[in-house]
Amino acid sequence: MCFLELRTTRLKSAKMMNRGCLLIFSIITTQLMPFKEALECMMGEYKVNGQCCPTCHPGYRVHETCSLMTGTTCVPCDPGTYTAHRSGLKDCLQCKVCDPAFGLVTRRECSPISNTVCGCSPGYFCTNMKDDDCEMCVAHRVCTPGQYVKSRGTERNNTICEECQAGTFSPNGTLDQCLPWTKFSSSINEVPSSTEAMSLLRPLVEALQITEELPKIGS
Rank of each mutant, 00 (worst) to 15 (best):
Ile28Met: 08
Ile28Phe: 08
Ile28Thr: 13
Thr30Arg: 10
Thr30Asp: 03
Gln31Lys: 11
Leu32Arg: 04
Met33Asn: 11
Phe35Asn: 10
Phe35Met: 07
Phe35Ala: 13
Lys36His: 07
Glu37Asp: 02
Ala38Pro: 03
Glu40Phe: 11
Glu40Thr: 14
Glu40Gly: 08
Glu40Asn: 12
Cys41Val: 11
Cys41Leu: 01
Cys41Thr: 12
Met42Pro: 00
Met42Thr: 15
Met42Arg: 13
Met43Gly: 10
Gly44Met: 13
Gly44Thr: 11
Gly44Cys: 14
Gly44Phe: 15
Glu45Cys: 03
Glu45Met: 10
Tyr46Thr: 15
Tyr46Met: 08
Tyr46Pro: 13
Lys47Leu: 12
Lys47Gln: 09
Lys47Pro: 01
Val48Cys: 08
Val48Pro: 04
Asn49Thr: 10
Gly50Glu: 13
Gly50Asp: 15
Gly50Met: 12
Gln51Gly: 00
Cys52His: 10
Cys53Val: 08
Pro54Trp: 08
Pro54Arg: 06
Pro54His: 14
Thr55Cys: 05
Thr55Arg: 06
Cys56Tyr: 04
Cys56Arg: 01
His57Gln: 07
His57Trp: 07
Pro58Glu: 02
Pro58Leu: 00
Pro58Gly: 01
Gly59Thr: 03
Tyr60Asn: 03
Tyr60Thr: 06
Arg61Ala: 03
Glu64Phe: 13
Thr65Phe: 00
Cys66His: 11
Cys66Thr: 12
Ser67Ile: 01
Ser67Pro: 08
Leu68Lys: 00
Met69Tyr: 07
Thr70Glu: 09
Thr70His: 11
Gly71Cys: 03
Gly71Asn: 10
Gly71Val: 04
Thr72Gly: 09
Thr73Met: 09
Thr73Arg: 06
Thr73Cys: 08
Thr73Ala: 07
Val75Ile: 09
Cys77Asn: 04
Cys77Tyr: 05
Cys77Met: 06
Pro79Lys: 07
Pro79Gln: 08
Gly80Val: 03
Gly80Glu: 14
Thr81Met: 12
Thr81Tyr: 10
Tyr82His: 02
Tyr82Gln: 01
Tyr82Trp: 04
Thr83Lys: 03
Ala84Ile: 02
His85Val: 03
His85Leu: 01
Ser87Tyr: 01
Gly88Tyr: 00
Leu89Arg: 02
Leu89Phe: 01
Lys90Arg: 11
Lys90Glu: 14
Lys90Cys: 05
Lys90Val: 13
